[in-house]
């Protein structure tokens, strides 16, 4: 009885350990595709091939900072985030707010703000992360390489059917 109980315990322990190890690597249930549409206005939503980027990048931390339980590269962040702890929130919009980031955060005494007082807004977080890496590895960097312009976008940028007609009155000095 005692032996059987011990074996069961060990067995369970091993099972638990292995599952923890598995999760801490890639086992998190990540989506193969993410449709980024929360900010779509001037451009169509982006269908992001997450699976391909998982294959291409060295680790989750390349994009997800410390939240997926892998070590961070930035030594400033690493002072607190040793990368061992996996967070409940991993998607970009869990931390990066859509609205403009206020410099007032600088004076907010909460820990969240003392160290995260210069956090980019959601749109910037996407673009800085994507374009920043794409510039380094030679990925596409043009606006419409990732998302097609909407009609509202054409009107805003005076492109497409809203392209200015050549007028005699060329721009002044």
């Amino acid at each position: 009885m005692v032996n059987a109980g011990k074996q069961l315990m060990v067995g369970l322990g091993v099972l638990l350990l292995s599952s923890v190890l598995a999760i801490s690597c890639y086992a998190m249930d990540y989506p193969d595709e993410v449709e980024i549409d929360v900010l779509a206005n001037l451009y169509e939503a982006v269908v992001f091939d997450h699976a391909m980027h998982v294959d291409l990048t060295e680790g989750c931390a390349d994009c997800h900072h410390h939240t997926t339980g892998t070590p961070v590269l930035n030594e400033y962040c690493a002072k607190c985030h040793d990368g061992k702890e996996e967070m409940d929130w991993v998607s970009c919009q869990d931390c990066h707010s859509a609205g403009p980031v206020s410099a007032e955060n600088l004076n907010n005494p909460k820990t969240d703000f003392i160290y995260h007082n210069d956090k980019p807004n959601l749109k910037a977080a996407y673009h800085l992360n994507c374009i920043g890496c794409h510039q380094e590895v030679g990925g596409p960097t043009g606006c419409e390489d990732c998302h097609a312009k909407t009609e509202a976008g054409d009107e805003f940028y005076r492109s497409g059917e809203f392209t200015p007609k050549k007028s005699a009155d060329s721009s002044g000095h």
Partner: peptide
């Protein structure tokens, strides 16, 4: 409210705030 150019920037090149606060952020960066 921040000016239109600041709000429209997809890369948040511009950060809007009190000049004194922003100067701290600049030196922090």
């Amino acid at each position: 409210r921040p000016p239109a150019c600041v709000e429209s920037c997809p890369q948040q090149v511009m950060t809007f705030g009190k000049r004194n606060d922003l100067m701290k952020i600049a030196h922090d960066r």
